[in-house]
Every structure is written in C-alpha cells, then in structure tokens.
Design a protein around this nucleic acid. Sequence first.
DNA 1: GGCAAAGAACTAAACGTTTAGCTTACAGGA
DNA 2: TCCTGTAAGCTAAACGTTTAGTTCTTTGCC
Lengths: 335, 335
Amino acid sequence: MGATIKDIAKYTGLSIATVSKYINGGNVLEKNKVLLDEAIKVLDFKINEMARGLKTNRSMTVGIMIPSLENIFFTSIISNVENILLQNGYSSIICDYREDPHLEREKLDFLLSRKVDGIIMVPHSNNAAFIQSVVEKGIPVVFIDRYLEDVQCDVVLVDNINASYNAVEQLIIRGHKRIGIICGPSNIYTTKERLKGYVRAHEDYAVKVDNDLVQYGKYDVESGYHMLIHLLKMENPPTAVYVTNYEMTLGAIMAINEKGIKVPDQMSLIGFDNIQLAKIVKPSLSIVVQPMKEIGEKAAQVLLSRLNKENTGGPSISRLKTELLIRESIKSVQA
Amino acid sequence: MGATIKDIAKYTGLSIATVSKYINGGNVLEKNKVLLDEAIKVLDFKINEMARGLKTNRSMTVGIMIPSLENIFFTSIISNVENILLQNGYSSIICDYREDPHLEREKLDFLLSRKVDGIIMVPHSNNAAFIQSVVEKGIPVVFIDRYLEDVQCDVVLVDNINASYNAVEQLIIRGHKRIGIICGPSNIYTTKERLKGYVRAHEDYAVKVDNDLVQYGKYDVESGYHMLIHLLKMENPPTAVYVTNYEMTLGAIMAINEKGIKVPDQMSLIGFDNIQLAKIVKPSLSIVVQPMKEIGEKAAQVLLSRLNKENTGGPSISRLKTELLIRESIKSVQA
DNA sequence: GGCAAAGAACTAAACGTTTAGCTTACAGGA
DNA sequence: TCCTGTAAGCTAAACGTTTAGTTCTTTGCC
C-alpha cells in the first residue's frame, strides 16, 4: 500500500541505508537531501512504525489505565497526558478497567503483549505484585492519584492530606464543630488521605470527631446525593459538609436543592474538583481544586524522562498542591 | 527480553513454523500440543504483535477520535467501543482533538502513520476530503453521532429528529405554545437534526416557532446555564424548555435552582442523556435518553465486520432509537 | 602528487513473525 | 508389497526497518 524506504531508495538512486539515515536525522549531501524530500513528498512516504519497532525494540507506545472513562477527573488528566505524549511521538493506548481488579490485570497483560514502552496508570487493587513484576521487566510505570506501597515506581499525587486539612480548617475557624465529610470508598488511597486531613484538622483545633459524620460514598453522583440526605436526617445534623470529589459534590448539591436547604445559612458546603461547576452554582461554591492539567503534564514528563533514560534514579514522588477557593458557600456559625 | 517463537522452538525441539502454526490455531500432535503449552507457560511467551503486524500488514489497532475527553457522552461510548474491540484482540488508540479541526487532521495523520486497521470517529469539521482519502486508501472508517455528506463510510447515529420531535410533541400535547430549545453549536450535525425535530413537531401541530426561543449554546455546562437565564429574562418567557445535551441540562438545572423556579409549576423541562442525573433531580427529570452502550457496540461491530471482510458492501447507516422518559418535570399548562 | 582523515554512501545481517511449498510419516486399499 | 492420500512438520524467504562494518569520495596538507 504505502511507499516504503525501498521505494524511496529506488526513486532517489540511493541505498536504503542512506535513506534510513536521513530519516533518522543523519547527514546527507545537500543535493540528496533535496532529492529525498522530493521522493518522500511524491510517494507520500510514512515510516512504518511496526517495522521500526521490531528493530529498535521500542513501540513508541505507552499504555494508560484508569478505573473509569466516565469520571471526568481521570479523563481530563489523560487528555493532557495523551497530548504531551503525542507531541513527543508516542501514541497512547487508553484502557478503562471499570473499577475491576480482574480486568485491570487483564488489560495490563494486553498492554504488555503490545510491547508498550511505558505505563501510566491509576492503580486500583492488589495487583501490586504483578505491577511490580512489570517494573522489574524494565518497563517504567507511573502511578497517578494513588499510591501502592509495594511497587517501586514513580508516583504523581496531590497533597490530599493538606487539601482536606485546609478545607476543614476553614470551617473550624468559622466556628463549625459538627462537620460532615463525604468520602470515597474506604479502601481507596485518596479516601484515606482526605479523611486523614479531616481528622488532623480536628485534632489540631481540639474538636472532637463524631464518626457518624464520616460517610463513605462511591465517588459517584448517586452516593453523593444519598450521603448528604443521610447527614441531613441525623438527629444532630452537621452545620457544614465537606465533599471529596466532583461527582459526589454534584449529587450533594442535588440533594440540597431538593430539600430546600439554604447554603450557607443553614449549612456550609465545600466541594471538590470542578471549578466550572463552582462558578455556576449559586451561592458560588467553595471548592478544593486539583491541578488536573499539572497532574497530567507531570506524569507525562516523569514517564518521558524515564523513557529517554534522562532519569535512571530511584522512584520519585511528586506531590502537587491543591488550591482552596473560598466563595459564598461557607459562613460562620453564631455561637 | 521476552521469549520469542524461536525460544519455544528450541524448548520443544519443533520448528518455528510449527510453533507459529500452533499459535495461530493450527493442528499439531497431542503430545506436541502439551509440550508447546508447557513451553509457553514456562518461558512466559507473548507474541510480538509488531513482528506479526509487519508480516500480516495488520496492526490489530484501531484509532478512535472524539472531540473531547471531557464530555461524558463521548467517553462512555468509547468505553464500550474499547471493550468490544479488546475482546476481539484489537487495541484502541484514543485521541481527543479538542474540538479543533486542525488538531483533528493532525491526529488523523498520526493514526495513519501508526498503520491503524480502522478508525472510529466523531467527525467535526470540514476535513471531509481528507477523511474520504483515508477511506479510499482502504482503511475502514465509522462515524459516530455525526454525519458528513462527502465521505463514503459507515455511520452510527441516533434518530435525533424523532427524538426531538417526540419530546417537543409531549410538551405541545400538554398545551405548551412557547417552548424554548437550547441547542448546540449551529454548525454541528446533531444540533441541526435536533432543531429539525423541534420545528417539525411545531409544524405538525400548527404551533408557530418563535425564533427568539431557539438558543444556541456550546454543549457545555456554562452555556446551558446562560441560555436558560437568557430565556427566563425574555419579556414573554417560555413555559417549557427542552435542552439538547447532558452538560447543558446540568447548567440549566443550576440556573433554575438559582432563580428559584418551580418545576414543573412555573416551567416544564426536558433534558438529555444522563439517566442517573434524571433520577436524582427533584422533581424527577423527563429526559431523552441516548443508547450510549448500543451506539458504542454498534460502531464496534460495524467496524469489526469491515475488518473481517464480512461486510464489503457500500456504506451503511445505523440509526438507533432514543427513549423518552416522562417524569415529573413536565405538566400541562392551563389554557 | 601523494597520503591521511573525514564524511558519505553502501552491503548485508538482523529483529520476530507468517506462509508457500516441500518432505516425511503413516494408514489403508488394491 | 506397493501405491496413494493425508496430516504434520520442516525449510526458507519475506515483511520494512536499523545498524555495524566496509568501501568509496572528497578534501586538505605536506
């Protein structure tokens, strides 16, 4: 179908070695250069990455694995990752393992058979041993958002603990004593971290944590809705609620609207992630903003520096800072 | 690194041809079969898809292109596409062209250099001529969601016209004469179709269309919000509003909540796409539901049947039906 | 003019598969 | 016993590159 390096050689009268050299940035005589450029254009030559990959043992492909393609936090990160990788000549095979450890393992296997040069992933489960074996094969792996102890690889995280700490601190400063938190699933890294910040802020200000105020959702719209309803129904409901991801924030807002709760008069609210949403909601929502663009870029860069052998050191941890936007949705409680 | 077919040959004492034959489903003696299975397991053999692709001239890879990775309608479709393709041994290179025709062209070029066997895409702009040239190269292309006249390829659409028609009809039946519609960008295929259904329903029931009630947004949360506010501010505002995608529906709901509009007493509302959202909102939202799962599956199947040469006929159009869920958010107006 | 050094181009093998065409082994029928 | 047919296995070439090692060409210097 397409022209090959051989066709170019025939067209120009040069050897295929010379053609290859030129394609890979080698020096050729000026007149040959002109000739080659012409041939490439005329014959519409595109290098065959499969043949090249076979020789060089590099596929120029990286695998990206996330728990769900329906979670905008992940998709917006990988959108950035994909873009940067593309600029560097890499294509990305994006896989969605649907929160299923078994599928995670399977797709990882698939990526390996595709001979990806590296992997960027949001790890889910206890496939740690398997992932570690991938790392040991010499395939660089970068974790995003979550951390697994037993895997020796680079990680890009946000400072979840302090993100939560700062958010909750703002509520405590404003006199709130009963602060609800809507967490993700209890076995997930970010859940633990975000909860830790919540607890730590309470400790530092000597406010007691009421475990009934700690609710575990599933990081989806529905559970955000239900957990907020649940908090409202308590006999001694919280005066403020902190929700720890975008989808659940959305759900919580739906619940609040439905119940006709006045924010911030009847309840203060701090949400997560989506700055666009925060602007639209009235009263404007206070939120913890994760730097999705930076996370994606950082992860891509870390992986690229491994792929280019610029970085051959031990595993690195990048911990990016979140931003806390204080808007109208929180106010002080009168004592 | 990994074991090759040669290593398997050495281990078993068979020739590489026999090994290859077995791997590809050929017959071998029972005892050799056992031996081969053992070798494959022991040596952890994974076929090298690049070498195979070089010989067979098939990369077992398909390209997927969507306008944005931050639009849940698209991501949930490709989640299904990716899954089905994977089950058939194909990997997908997912690209997001960020609504940019220039980038669309560039990424398409990239996919070609990756020698993808086929392409599934949501086309955006007037790259029609270029896409047609891809088709003519013999690379099957399947369009999703949108249609471009000048390209001879398979298309998977939903019946946007009747989706809109049915939704608007329900409003007209309930006595609404002034029905607002929040459309997408005016140059997009789905926008035109959805508007057409709106107009047609008006025609069939002899209700005049007031062009001021037709608002064009950008298929994002923000514009849904703004367009609804705009409609409310009119001196003669609509008694019902029909919003034509998920993100804008979200924005519209935010606006309604902010303004304290009672649905359906002060305004009837029909939204789009997200069934989960529809359940959560109170009063429960009437919506047009697109069969995302089916769209993804259909597109994957259509492409696979081209790749397997099961279908060598002319371009096909699959038009899937939407579903209209009538809930509490609409009611009759008293004459 | 002769020679060395540098630069450009060439030859040929290799990467890990598939596959056409050939050989071998074996069973069954005449 | 010999022949034929069939199934299983084998040999070797090819896919489109890269690259080590070699040869050819040019240039500069003595």
